[in-house]
Computed example of a mutant assay.
Amino acid sequence: MFSGIRFYSTRSKPEVDLKKLRPMILKRIEERAKEYPVKGMLTVAREVLQARTALYDGVSTLSQRIPIWACKYCPEVYIGEGGHLIQTCHGYRHHAKNKVHSWVKGNMNDVIVPVQTFHLQKMFQNVVKHHERFDYDRIPAVVELCLQAGADDNDQRVSSSVDTPDGFGINTADRVSLSDDDLRLVATRTLRAWETLRSGVHKLLFVYPARVCKHCSEVHVGPSGHKARMCGVFKYESWRGTHFWEKARVDDLVPPKLVWFRRRQDPPILVDKGREYYGRAPAVVDLCSKAGALVPSKYFCMMKMDGLTAPD
């Protein structure tokens, strides 16, 4: 006796008439659009915009006192006196391998990586075609997410976020003359804004869809990705194809930009032979910690705060 064997019918299933289903699908999308924006998420969107403005203001202030270094040939960034000697440079097109970095003065975009996206008039609209890519403005992805969450276009927080604020509260002379206590206070506010920004974006992504390309850094805020054939441009590739979309995460909209973190037990200049012992940290967290802010304990593991020192 054969038990547990199922016999399935070999008769073909009736074909689905997509022409009849199309009006039903479009009506369902239209009905779904009436549920947005979600009123309960409007407060979160406003908090995210405020945190983003405070973050840029704080990083701009701290960068006047704490050196930021960027590699001339790759995206590596280091925060502190002089660059490190860890051999992780791969050059423009990854042609080089394990070279020492060539350090130049960095800026705020090296600490807070800008992520741009197409600005849509409404969340549920026709997909952006390739020939329409120049008809839409490009704005920060976080701002677009907040706009789709119900933030007002005429709000001062939106306009300042679109323009990427640069220390509007403190002029350059006052930043340089800040005392250590004032600098520590700015660093604490900046680190709090960083945490508020990331947690707020995390909450918004539960309600509002966003997409990221699997093969490049392109982000699209909306229920489906656009059709602009730009894949490869952001990685300096020689071809331009359509994006392969998948669900976006917080790190896609707010990249942490990990940097090597120098601990108390580490040498003044980090060397290559100790790279297995050194910790890593988001650039904003490292910048704020060097200004005196207390780092949240959730970063201790990746920063290897109490780890062993590298052998001589």
Rank of each mutant, 00 (worst) to 15 (best):
182 D>H: 06
212 V>Q: 14
136 Y>D: 04
126 N>V: 10
258 L>Q: 04
85 L>V: 00
191 L>T: 00
56 Y>G: 01
43 T>C: 00
297 S>C: 00
282 P>K: 04
9 S>M: 03
194 W>I: 02
167 G>R: 04
214 K>N: 13
151 A>N: 09
43 T>D: 05
241 G>H: 15
311 P>K: 03
20 K>E: 12
150 G>N: 13
42 L>G: 00
201 V>D: 02
267 P>T: 07
269 I>M: 13
66 I>T: 12
140 P>L: 03
124 F>E: 13
273 K>Y: 14
78 Y>N: 03
91 G>K: 05
33 A>D: 06
104 V>G: 12
261 F>D: 10
288 C>I: 00
231 C>W: 14
283 A>I: 06
107 N>V: 00
273 K>S: 13
33 A>T: 05
118 F>D: 05
185 L>C: 04
48 V>K: 06
293 A>D: 03
87 Q>W: 01
280 R>F: 15
34 K>W: 01
77 V>G: 06
31 E>I: 00
228 A>E: 09
171 N>R: 06
20 K>G: 10
76 E>N: 07
147 L>A: 12
84 H>R: 08
104 V>W: 06
229 R>P: 07
203 K>A: 14
195 E>W: 02
37 P>K: 10
29 I>T: 09
296 P>N: 02
60 S>I: 07
303 M>D: 01
48 V>P: 05
135 D>T: 12
145 L>Q: 04
190 T>M: 14
231 C>Q: 15
4 G>D: 09
247 K>Q: 13
37 P>F: 09
136 Y>A: 08
147 L>D: 13
263 R>T: 05
142 V>F: 00
109 N>S: 03
312 D>M: 08
122 K>V: 09
34 K>Y: 02
58 G>F: 04
260 W>Q: 05
43 T>Q: 07
51 A>K: 10
13 K>Q: 12
284 V>P: 02
166 D>E: 12
151 A>S: 15
32 R>Y: 03
196 T>I: 09
157 R>F: 05
67 P>T: 05
32 R>A: 13
296 P>E: 03
10 T>W: 13
220 H>R: 11
285 V>T: 02
202 H>R: 15
44 V>G: 08
81 E>A: 07
224 S>Q: 13
246 E>H: 13
3 S>G: 05
83 G>C: 04
20 K>M: 13
16 V>S: 06
168 F>V: 12
103 W>H: 07
268 P>I: 14
73 Y>H: 08
97 K>D: 11
203 K>W: 00
1 M>G: 08
266 D>V: 05
74 C>W: 02
133 R>D: 12
175 R>K: 08
